[in-house]
Design a protein around this nucleic acid. Structure first.
Lengths: 218, 218
DNA sequence: TGCATTCCGTATCAATAGCTCCACAACGCG
DNA sequence: CGCGTTGTGGAGCTATTGATACGGAATGCA
């Protein structure tokens, strides 16, 4: 098994192959962490849910904290990718609308056990004492925010963004809405509700070509 | 001690008095829960931080889960009170501005060990398995949201709110921003940053008498 | 078929979890 | 003072925690 494992170059595997898919285990572990928090998820719960033993889990990930950390960073990449894709949109409205709606879609993925938004749930409340996950997430937000702010400052220069609002302030506000969306996703909002809210937010925060009162037909 | 204990009417205390202030203990416990999550906070940590023994803690609150539950409900009342005060404002802009700025102020209280916003942190990620705290918080959001929506529907009827946006949708969006603010408070935002963001959000979501581009002098 | 290597599950470790027991201390009342 | 009542801390209970030891099972290579 383990077809999808990343095995770069010359290091071909030796010894008994792993009986489970590491990436899949990581995703399912993240799902458990999201549901019960870090301390609330025991290694036995993880092993049981993954269908393996604790020794296999430890040999694959090292430590419970390391597994959590890896899960967080894995999913953090998804959100950074969404930011990167959004800033490529030609208009300010397009950037913000794309960012929020894509994130809303990502937050409500139910296939393959998507853990909602680790970034603003499990991480914030309960993290391994040895790891500064909160600091990592704050840094991630800062990094993604910097990318968005640069895009908005560029729009400010070209006149696409009215200078009255302020690129920095709008960036922070958009990120605030972004995190609010993730919270509501975990509180049980459906995808349609969440995407609709994202679209409305984009329309109000950065009015596009169409009037606010008459949202563009999707 | 225990001067501030609420002791209504005829039930005068009998037996040895409690050596600590129950309300204060509740607040400090909430602070710990906020920092480490429910499972991440042990009864010994709680007892140690409160300067008492675990037996005293158990005799005062019953169970770790009950203590957590009581802490959550106590702080939930604060947020409901903020909603109640906000909807009394005469204009839609005033309602939303008041709700968001007061909440931002509440989220950044550092005195007396305010636990940030339990509602969207510890609660969401890690809660006692026996208690449906997530359900309670969702219900609370629904209840507070209903109050806000009723106020906005009234404004819609009197013309204070343009019918194009929709009272229900705006309510949800405001609550989304509300939760986003609480998230950013926990990620380290200062009070000034948070209040400024709340004011900006109120200006964009519900433009007041002044133009959006020229925010009203505070 | 041997050998080296790696992963597997079972059993188990010390530490800590939530929680309780119990003898004693601090009150109001007579 | 004695008595009932209630809170007190220290010791201790069982269950579970994160993590490991170890023998066996799979693999690639010769």
């Amino acid at each position: 098994m383990d077809h999808s494992s990343y095995n770069p170059g010359m290091a071909r595997p030796v010894g008994r192959p792993r009986s489970f898919d590491r990436g899949d285990a990581l995703r399912r572990a993240a799902h458990l962490f999201w549901q019960h928090g870090f301390s609330g998820t025991s290694t036995r719960m993880l092993a049981s849910a993954l269908g393996i033993s604790t020794s296999s889990l430890y040999s694959a990930f090292g430590t419970k904290g390391a597994l959590f950390d890896e899960a967080v960073r894995t999913y953090a990449l998804r959100y950074s990718a969404i930011y990167a894709a959004a800033v490529a949109e030609p208009t300010v409205h397009g950037v913000i609308d794309r960012l929020l709606t894509d994130s809303a879609t990502e937050f409500t993925r139910t296939d393959e056990g998507h853990p909602g938004c680790l970034t603003s749930s499990a991480v914030m409340a309960d993290a391994p004492p040895t790891l500064d996950v909160r600091g990592y997430v704050a840094e991630l937000q800062r990094s993604d925010g910097a990318r968005l702010r640069a895009r908005l400052e560029q729009a400010e220069a070209t006149g696409d963004l009215p200078p009255a609002v302020g690129a920095a302030a709008l960036t922070e506000l958009v990120q605030t809405v972004w995190q609010g969306l993730s919270c509501r996703a975990e509180l049980g909002a459906t995808r349609d509700e969440l995407v609709g809210m994202a679209r409305l937010a984009a329309g109000l925060l950065a009015p596009g070509a169409h009037a606010v009162g008459a949202p563009a037909p999707r």
